[in-house]
Design a protein around this nucleic acid. Structure first.
Lengths: 350, 350
DNA sequence: ATGAAAGCGCTAACAA
DNA sequence: TTGTTAGCGCTTTCAT
């Protein structure tokens, strides 16, 4: 649509009186061209509105682009499984354009496995890398290496304070806490609310939930200052312990009917909640894990706030693909995903 | 990644003792091949796990694919403007793969302009068509012609009862009414609710709001059977009339605090609502028009239910692109979009 | 610094 | 029915 007829490097070779070879050299500015020729070629290029033919280029260099996706191994039913499902989701037309996204999984609790995965990625010489910065220090080391090799990378889920990334796709964490509080407390005059937390001490990982909690608490301060907020800690690997903990808490605080968790594990509470039904209770959690959505369906959980991790991955891959293919740099770096409010009435098509 | 080394039609030509030409013929089964050769080629193809090189193919045929998008002209601030914005959103890598999406706008109130747009589309010989079936009869005529020409098409927004389409992307209408009712009536014991409707008689158009209303009424019947539901009709082009109508209604029914509209025009009520603030009022509408989102922000409207018309368009284009490029047929035909619940706390990143 | 030429894998027109 | 061949637009040696 640009020009009436598509113009090729031949056209611009003819017009400049130079050869295809030279034109190609300036096109990819790989030197060995006289200043004069360079300028002349550039001039004609813009004059004629030349646009390279991607197929021809790709065909000629016979290279497939690889986008490495560095995220934790997707244990069934986990948050990262959702994220991983975004890898295949990548438009097939992208595949058709010669970009392949490949997962490089690692154990999110084992920093060594992360290092190993990083090494593999480097070996594979990808055109781009998508990663979630779980291990802060190690991530910095790795992205440093990527930068050295001139390999662009995108963050998903959360984002370190560095600056070299091509783009970031994630949920606005603080705001999500705010939204969460609003969904939790539809009425005024709430007596108390319970935050169920998971202890995470051992791992030197970043913790996205602290921002969420901050947003939550600020909302409560502003809108329900008299609400007493309790915290309770549970171990995700100890279902019985969770049950007992809740039993203990609620026998002391039967008046509390508002419960919230800031990570993706709200489903851990289902056994206790199901055993102690209460139509006036309100439970809000995060992320569309299968187990969470089931809890929504059967009414155990009232609202889930979703962030489409699969979309985050897809968008990151696409950004990288476009960078590799077309040299495009996204106009904005930070892309905050919409926060989806899920209830039993709109989970089905999620 | 498929095979160790990429295998080409030359390989399979050599292996079968036939020529590239013949191989190509069976690849695109365009006949002129003996049964025997055909079988042999197919055998070797699967044996070697041959996969065509899309660039080479595209380069050779030098054809760009055109996807025509047949939707109403996007008046600023309208629903269709949102939809149209999905056209550009199409991944650029798709563009890189040689697919261009082009809008063919028409006047949604003028069936003649629709016919004209259809004619233009046919002339352009697109590889696929995206359309919203506003004019029922005319749509049938048009899709009939498309079918004749072997051009695949996708519906967005709503879907006729026909069957020849490649895919459909839209909101589940009945369910959206149900969801709407749930968002409107958070408490029990509602005295009354008001449905504001737009008269549409002149136009022989399909009306998606009837299903929505049905879902809404069913929810109310099941969950708030004692709620009296009133209807009021307004003319979108007569702001003063709207104001007066509401004035009239609410002077008679001051106890009604729940208001809903099933089309995308909830913003029409803003002047009256803003002039008569009531913290206990609840207003629910549909679609993320700019004006609607503004109303959400300033608190005039409580909840908006969104369906991402731009995504519908994008997905439809992609489905068509993949069909054109790779011959892929979507596994499911009907794709129901997630219904987004928007409040003032999550509009920002929408 | 520049040009010539051989492909990349596939398509399509033409011969046979 | 099948084979041959000339490109498609660009990249990449290898000469010059």
């Amino acid at each position: 649509m640009a020009q009436n007829e598509k113009i090729t490097i031949n056209d611009i070779a003819r017009r400049t009186g130079l050869s295809k070879g030279t034109v190609d050299r300036v096109l990819h500015n790989r030197g060995e061209v006289s200043r004069k020729s360079y300028d002349r070629v550039m001039e004609v290029i813009r004059e004629l509105g030349y646009e390279p033919n991607v197929y021809a280029s790709l065909l000629a260099k016979g290279k497939k682009h690889l986008v490495a996706v560095l995220i934790p191994a997707s244990e069934p039913g986990s948050f990262w499984e959702l994220a991983a499902s975004g890898i295949g989701r990548g438009v097939d037309s992208m595949t058709a354009a010669g970009v392949e996204a490949v997962p490089f999984p690692y154990d999110q609790y084992d920093i060594e496995s992360f290092r190993a995965a990083c090494a593999k990625v480097l070996e594979a010489e990808p055109s781009g890398v998508v990663l979630a910065p779980l291990f802060q220090g190690e991530t910095e080391v790795f992205t440093g290496k990527l930068a050295e090799s001139g390999i662009p990378y995108c963050f998903i889920d959360s984002r370190p304070d560095s600056n070299g990334y091509l783009a970031y796709f994630g949920m606005p964490l603080y705001k999500s806490g705010y939204l969460c509080a609003d969904q939790l407390t539809r009425e005024r005059n709430i007596r108390g609310a319970l935050i169920v937390r998971v202890r995470r001490d051992r791992y030197q990982q970043s913790d996205p939930t602290v921002n969420r909690r901050a947003g939550f608490l600020d909302y409560m301060l502003e809108n329900a200052p008299d609400c007493k907020i309790d915290n309770v800690f549970v171990d995700p690997n100890d279902p019985d312990g969770i049950y007992t903990t809740l039993d203990g808490y609620f026998s002391e605080h039967p008046e509390v009917r508002h419960i919230v968790m800031f990570n993706s594990r709200i489903h851990l509470l289902v056994p206790w909640l199901a055993a102690h039904p209460d139509p006036d209770r309100r439970v809000v959690g995060f992320d569309n894990l299968k187990a969470n959505m089931d809890a929504l369906r059967d009414g155990t959980v009232s609202v889930l706030i979703g962030q489409r991790p699969d979309e985050q991955v897809r968008l990151a891959i696409e950004a990288l693909a476009e960078h590799a293919l077309l040299g495009k740099v996204p106009p904005r770096k930070d892309h905050f995903m919409h926060m989806d409010i899920l209830t039993r009435y709109n989970v089905e098509d999620y």
